[in-house]
Write a protein that binds this DNA or RNA. Structure first.
Lengths: 211, 211
DNA sequence: GAAAGTACGTACCGTTGGTATGTCACCCAA
DNA sequence: TTGGGTGACATACCAACGGTACGTACTTTC
């Protein structure tokens, strides 16, 4: 049972993150002042600094919220499928959708790395959308006939994650997002077909020692 | 023939960009003050604002310099090769090298997008390393037997560029960069093998209409 | 119902990006 | 040679911003 004070406190905190998410999305990190945030939430800086340690902290709260929404959306899109390759395609489409959201583009992709720093950004990523990509990549590539070690699977995940992020960015800025998404879908599908063919053609040859 | 005043002026401008590049690389954009830059270059803010319109402008000058160095390095690595696939592999290795440079990581990858904005960042990219990737992708994929239109080739370039950037990032933060680079090389080589196989196996089928 | 603590509000500070204005050396024409 | 004009800065200053110190009212607890 929550006490009344806690309910009030949670409410103001939520209001702060709400406004912060909107302003950070619209104007970016540096162009968003704490004064504007507290004014929008109808509180003062005292309240903000009571709930958060500083500007970076409230940014991170908005960041996490945006990323968890994207993660949930992608997770929902993939959970139905049984075949790993189908699951991968469904995940890709959901990813391309999620990455077009303005908040994701501005807060996560653009401001995320520079505000949080490489390290924290990587940490945050790894327990959200990146985790889904990793899971899918492993389910697709980690057949018994393949001797891909953990680090090699990580490498593939990184590559696909980067490819999809860049592809998503190009979709987001396109004049015709639907057509652009279709092209990305075709291109990555094509690459996946190549991998699949290779998987069947020379199963067991091993790529880890290739130079 | 340059007058003495111009030589002095060029010298101070170069000194400013030198210091800016170093400080932006070491501490990032927001943690680098103009006071620190002008102090390091042994001039005053008046000089800085005489040569640049503001902080963003001098950042962009450092940005361009770092990117042009990377571009030149990659260009040098690829110019010898005749076979497109070999050229691509050589370019990939040079890219993975270039992306490990601290300046490239901090200024171009981390701060670049948020400071310059998506738009200007994309512009800068497109006439440097991205242009090389695009050229290589086209030389590899644009065989006569393939009916890939311009937009589809762009899509492939975006995807590969994103993949390589992400891969480069993972190499840069790795405990053992050499081993990580080898893994990336193997993984992308594997993907390329898949594409090549597909190119020969079902030449002319066309991927543009695939959904 | 008093003591303790939470959840803020208020007032203030140092730093920072940016600007307005002054100044002096240098170039060029007469 | 010289003197007006201009480029290349230096100096002084400002507003905005992130952050801090401290005060206060309302709640919970005992």
């Amino acid at each position: 049972m929550k006490t009344r004070r806690q309910r009030y406190s949670d409410s103001t905190k939520r209001a702060l993150v709400d406004v912060a998410e909107r302003l950070f999305t619209e104007h970016g990190y540096s162009a968003t002042s704490l004064d504007a945030i507290v004014a929008g939430a109808d509180v003062t800086k005292g309240a903000l600094y009571h709930h958060f340690s500083g500007k970076q902290a409230i940014f991170e709260a908005a960041f996490e919220r945006i990323e968890s929404r994207a993660t949930a959306s992608i997770g929902r899109a993939t959970e139905g499928h049984r075949d790993p390759w189908e699951k991968a395609r469904a995940g890709l489409r959901a990813f391309l959708e999620a990455v077009q959201e303005p908040g994701y583009r501005q807060v996560v992709i653009s401001d995320g790395p520079s505000v949080l720093g490489h390290e924290r950004f990587r940490e945050q990523e790894e327990r959200s959308t990146y985790a889904i990509v990793d899971e899918i990549v492993r389910s697709v590539l980690a057949g018994d006939e393949w001797a891909l070690d953990d680090q090699m699977l990580d490498t593939f995940t990184r590559i696909f994650f980067g490819a999809m992020s860049a592809a998503g960015g190009s979709v987001a800025v396109s004049d015709d997002p639907a057509a652009a998404a279709a092209r990305v879908d075709a291109a990555i599908g094509f690459i996946m077909d190549g991998l699949r063919q290779l998987l069947h053609a020379e199963a067991g040859s091993g790529v880890t020692s290739r130079t």
